[in-house]
């Protein structure tokens, strides 16, 4: 299992801030693929992935227990 975190527009499309999904093995790209399929109405094209609160490349492995966050373009300040 992995823990997913949604923010801003993705959170509104998903209708939730967090969810857990079954997970054995794969990369950040695979999680992104899952999200695109699950929430097709959201445009994930400029979304970055963070694993356990660090930005990663899509080739990064995702292990069970990881926290995976979808980070839309930020707009703080």
């Amino acid at each position: 299992m992995i823990h997913l975190h949604y923010f801003a527009g993705i959170k509104e499309v998903a209708g939730k801030a967090e969810e857990d999904i079954d997970w054995v093995d794969g990369t950040a790209a695979d999680v992104l693929k899952w999200a695109k399929k699950s929430y097709p109405s959201f445009d994930f094209s400029s979304v970055q992935i963070a694993i356990n609160e660090e930005y990663v490349l899509e080739t990064e492995p995702v292990k069970p227990g990881d926290h995976v966050a979808f980070i839309p373009p930020v707009s703080g300040g």
Binding site: F7, G9, S46, A50, P73, V74, S75, G76, G77
Partner: peptide
Amino acid sequence: IKRVVPIWKKEIWEDGEEWIGD
């Protein structure tokens, strides 16, 4: 902050709202 810190702003107008990004 504007590049890397995961914080998001939503503008609420008289006639709508939008998450601002990037």
